[in-house]
Nucleic acid binder design. Structure first.
Lengths: 159, 159
DNA sequence: GATAATTGTTAGCCAAGGCTAAACTGTTTG
DNA sequence: CAAACAGTTTAGCCTTGGCTAACAATTATC
């Protein structure tokens, strides 16, 4: 653990832009992003499976592959993982179901996604752009920010 | 390419929540996220190196490792990659420099980051939360949304 | 009901991005 | 100036999440 940096001025004076955050805080930012990345894909799969079930009555691997633009082999492998994690149940060659826990995750993830999407639209972002941005952003928005976004959206709706 | 889904109602009627987007659009969302992920880390490194140079006069591997909360070995490996990509120049055991291209990327990335961070603060998000969220969000915000965020922030500043 | 088409699985490959341990270089200091 | 220390690199390992190709099962069609 080098504190080499700390020998110098902690908050340099006349630079353009913001100062660097303290090391611990800075590190925490990057760690948060890495953590988000670990769960992100899992959540996306679970969310999509939930959506497919809701809207189509069932979730099949081929549909997931199409919608994710990914090979069926990739989906198959991922489903095995979701199984091990206790998020879905599946019998070979049959369509998928979410466990209790999976349903909870799908629901949370869905809600999160919707808040971000509606927020972006309320901000004035074009629908198809909002969809793309929301998909990427949803896993990186804290609960605090999410609440604020929701409040903002509601205010826009009833001016 | 299965169109199995399309046999059914394309926009189902009375469900709660939004309908599923058409397959092509949906796929595009996920592809965008995967693409962002590929460049994300690279941009983070380059941005951080730029920041270290600006604020401290030099960027050393140990500082990067500390700030990213990652081992030095990981940094070392990454620097080799950045080198191959023509983004940084480095002599063994010496501190790092950004190439022209690297500087351009650092600058763009920095600007993006700042817009998102200032936007979140203008929205009313607490500073340390805003920093964490901004770090994750910055790579998933389209230019369109970025512009809107910037406009919003300026409006808040001068009410 | 046999065969064709679709869907699902398995095996084996690859790159990215982490890690630890060990070797090496450069700098500081007794 | 030699030894100790701090910083850097290399080697080798692991997991994820992609892919293709080959095979297996289910479903559709004649």
């Amino acid at each position: 653990m080098s504190d080499h940096e700390q020998r110098h001025t902690p908050t340099p004076p006349g630079h353009s832009g913001d100062a660097l955050p303290p090391v611990e805080q800075h590190a925490q930012q990057y760690e948060a992003v890495r953590n988000a990345h670990e769960t992100e894909l899992i959540e996306d799969y679970v969310e999509l499976i939930g959506d497919l079930i809701r809207h189509r009555g069932e979730a099949r691997a081929a549909d997931i592959a199409n919608r994710m633009a990914v090979s069926q082999a990739t989906v198959s492998k991922m489903i095995r993982r979701l199984n091990e994690l206790g998020l879905v149940t599946s019998k070979p060659y049959r369509s998928l179901f979410l466990t209790e826990e999976g349903q909870k995750m799908a629901q949370t993830s869905r809600a999160r996604h919707d808040v971000v999407l509606h927020f972006l639209r309320a901000l004035g972002v074009d629908d198809s752009t909002a969809r793309i941005d929301a998909e990427g952003m949803e896993h990186h928005v804290s609960d605090e920010t999410l609440t604020i976004m929701q409040r903002f959206t509601e205010q826009q709706r009833t001016p």
